[in-house]
Write a protein that binds this DNA or RNA. Sequence first.
DNA 1: TCCGCCGAAATTATAGATAATATTGGAATC
DNA 2: GATTCCAATATTATCTATAATTTCGGCGGA
Lengths: 219, 219
Amino acid sequence: MAATNEDTIATRICRILAERIVTGELEPGTKLRQDHIAEEFGTSHVPVREAFRRLEAQGLAVSEPRRGVRVATFSLEAVREVAEMRAALEVLALRHAAPHLTPSILDQAEEATVEADRARDVRSWEEANRRFHRLLLTPCGMPRLLAAIDDLHAVSARFLFATWRSDWEVRPDHDHRAILAFLRQGRTENAAAVLERHVQRIGQKPAKNASGGAFAIVG
Amino acid sequence: MAATNEDTIATRICRILAERIVTGELEPGTKLRQDHIAEEFGTSHVPVREAFRRLEAQGLAVSEPRRGVRVATFSLEAVREVAEMRAALEVLALRHAAPHLTPSILDQAEEATVEADRARDVRSWEEANRRFHRLLLTPCGMPRLLAAIDDLHAVSARFLFATWRSDWEVRPDHDHRAILAFLRQGRTENAAAVLERHVQRIGQKPAKNASGGAFAIVG
DNA sequence: TCCGCCGAAATTATAGATAATATTGGAATC
DNA sequence: GATTCCAATATTATCTATAATTTCGGCGGA
């Protein structure tokens, strides 16, 4: 059994809606109508409302009382804000995780990097990239910090998918490799510095891919 | 009319419960029973459940599916974690806010410091302290960052109230004054450095007040 | 005396129904 | 022809009721 037994209905609805918002299937500003969603999932609207509250907390939806819930919009400024928050928090997490990083973990992170470089589409690149970050940060043992970073990752991924809808080009990720190299040498501060720059690249204008007003998102 | 017209019932319940949890009126681990709370507020349990979801997101309550919601417990480790997150995020906010700080704002922050030094009880000290931080950080213009800091502040305040239940001694806050002095000179990085140390004092053992296993919380 | 089992009570989670509010379209007026 | 007002509609926020799950007490057996 894998898909059927999700803890609570609200949890499942929240997860699925979050995925739709992040991947761009639900566009910014779209109205989320509780009765329609309830009907789609074959439930009443009560769990739907609970799911809304969670999406709101994650910054994926905004709710105006008596006027409904909408998919959150995002500006270039919001992208930068999230990038800076991620940079600050991931550096903090890495500093605490570094002492607990084993060669095995670093090897797995390297595998994730290789997989990201081989990715043929945004979706699989994002998954590998996220795995890389998670592998390095989880050993910090700070659950609240990790949860906050996860939420920011979701928002970042949203920007990522919005920018690179279909055209995705493979680029080897030098930052990831540099971070791993420093960590293998025990040079945590150097690794943290690279990570900080790396994450802040989110929201920067692309170097060459200047078609339209699109902006590049990595990290 | 001030108290009657709160946007939505769920919002009001959430705010009041949050206050009770933060001040310690509701102790860690206490079961939050939706029907009882609904009865107290004269509503059904549906808005209560929505309030629970928000409290959960703020880290003030934890919910186990089908087993109810409890006031979140906190360990010394959790205190340190929140302190470090606050340090990282407040430094980030201060760096962005610094260019927009006016003499008027700095004067108001100084007033808040004076007021904190004069505070006769924890409650009013906390309020003045929070105002100090908010005044300096709000001009950064990063709403998501400020919201995250606010949530962390609430959790910090919880630890604060839990530690200093009744015995509160006045101590002039040198850190706040140093931060203001640096900001007046335009030395943002020095101010940020002091702020970082300052916030991280949360969760450190007290210097002299070593009665029982209590730990000091400031910030 | 201690352990496990069973049943009643309490509590959560969901469904269906109702009241209040916002939105939309059209008609009347300027 | 444009604008404002009003009624019909759609949607949200809430309440009441029902089903399912957990907890807690006592009871019997080892």
